[in-house]
Amino acid sequence: MDNGEARSRVLDAAEELFYGQGIQTVGMDAVRSASGVTLRRLYQLFPSKGALVEAYLLRRDARWRDSLAAYVDSVDAPPRERVLAVFDWLRGWFEEPGFRGCAFINSFGELGATSPEVAEAARRHKEEFLRYVTGLVAVTDAPAPAGRHVALLAEGAMTTAALTGSSAPAGEAREAAALLLDAAARGGRGAPGAGRSAPPNR
């Protein structure tokens, strides 16, 4: 087994264990057993558990975002529908066996206060997701702030789906995003706060 294959097997095992059971409860021995890579080889590839956790998060980030982008790119529809396709992809993810929410929120909750590497990986993942969603919204008729609002709806759907064990939040967030985009495209008519009278001049 060359280093490339060994590394992939270790990361595959680490991802299943860390995501499924939590990072702090899984030791390097468990990763060794699940991967079939000797402990000595494991530590040659990843000198510490922290290094393995960081590699796991970096690879998961790339795979997650690539999968989302590939799905959205496959949607041959106007820009508004491509934004809403994000929620269709989320629904499919929520329905996968073993879904436990966002790996980056989970890891930040476990280790964000003590591991700068984990905190940075989580922040970077969320920043890239926000950048992606705002990019999709930017080519619709909605103004720029709508991109952040749509991303927040997606983030809320992820958290709610993890807590409830249901994929329904993806559809509910999709409906909210559609309303938001339509209201924003009309210049904010019907958006929260729209139509309020301005405070009188004093």
Rank of each mutant, 00 (worst) to 15 (best):
G50I: 04
P97D: 08
G101Y: 08
V118K: 06
Y132H: 11
G50F: 03
V72E: 03
A85E: 02
R91D: 07
V75D: 05
G156C: 08
L130P: 09
V139R: 13
A161P: 01
E120V: 00
E127C: 09
E96S: 15
A154Y: 10
Y43G: 05
E81H: 10
T134M: 13
V75M: 05
G147L: 01
A55Y: 04
R123N: 13
G36M: 05
G112S: 11
G98N: 09
A55C: 03
Y71H: 14
R100V: 00
W93Q: 14
S167A: 15
G135N: 06
L42I: 05
H125G: 04
A121S: 08
A162K: 12
F129N: 13
M158L: 15
I105P: 09
A103V: 08
R63E: 14
E95K: 10
R59N: 02
E120I: 01
L152E: 15
L57S: 02
A77K: 12
W89L: 11
D66A: 15
R60Q: 12
W64M: 14
P47D: 04
C102N: 05
V133Q: 06
R148M: 05
G101L: 01
V139A: 08
Q44R: 08
H149M: 15
T114V: 15
V53T: 05
E96K: 15
T114E: 11
D66E: 15
L163R: 12
R124E: 06
R59K: 14
C102P: 12
P169L: 08
A113M: 05
A77P: 14
R123Y: 00
R82E: 13
R124F: 01
G50C: 04
F129P: 11
V137P: 07
L45G: 06
A119Q: 08
H125F: 01
M158F: 12
V139Y: 07
F46E: 02
L163A: 02
V75L: 02
E54C: 04
Y56D: 02
S107E: 10
W93G: 11
D76M: 07
V133H: 10
H125S: 08
V118F: 05
D141T: 04
S67Q: 12
G92K: 00
W93K: 15
L111W: 05
R100T: 05
P78N: 02
L111R: 08
T140R: 10
T159D: 12
